[in-house]
Structures are given as structure tokens and as C-alpha cells.
């Protein structure tokens, strides 16, 4: 089971806030985060790592990126 956070088109710090909310909510597992700028990609990755999550995959997705983070 994975959750998707759609942070496309949202400016700082919304993508990070949404990611952190989701991390708190699910505790562990896998979260897919959709972002549309490199800044957001870096910010959500940094935020997830700071919470002990692992960056599993980063794929170009449309005009932005699809970042998958996970925690066992």
C-alpha cells in the first residue's frame, strides 16, 4: 500500500508540510510525492530523510518529478 501526495504547483513550504503530515500519519511504508520543481524535489527529499525515511526512487514525471520515499 502506498499513499500519494500531490504537491504539484504548490509553493514553498507546502510540499514539505504535506509530506511531513503524511509521514506523521502513516508512520511507515511508502509515500509517493508528486512535485513540479527541482526545489520541491530537493526539499521533500531532505525533509523525508530528516525523518529517517529513505529516498527509494526519483523519476521524471510530466513536467516535474515523482519522488518515492519509504520506511520499513
Amino acid at each position: 500500500m502506498s499513499t500519494t501526495v500531490d504537491a504539484r504547483g504548490l509553493s514553498c513550504p507546502q510540499p514539505v508540510l504535506m509530506t511531513m503530515d503524511e509521514i506523521r500519519k502513516v508512520g511507515k511504508g511508502e509515500i509517493v510525492i508528486l512535485v513540479d520543481t527541482d526545489t520541491s524535489k530537493e526539499n521533500v527529499s531532505r525533509a523525508a530523510e530528516s525523518q529517517g525515511w529513505r529516498i527509494k526512487d526519483v523519476q521524471p514525471d510530466g513536467i516535474g518529478y515523482c519522488v518515492t520515499v519509504s520506511k520499513e
Binding site: 500500500m1 502506498s2 499513499t3 500519494t4 501526495v5 500531490d6 504548490l10 507546502q14 504535506m18 503530515d21 503524511e22
Partner: peptide, 8 residues
Amino acid sequence: RVLNEHNS
């Protein structure tokens, strides 16, 4: 509120 999508 910007709602997150939930896929299962």
C-alpha cells in the same frame, strides 16, 4: 485544505 490522494 489541499487533500492528499489515498491509493490502496
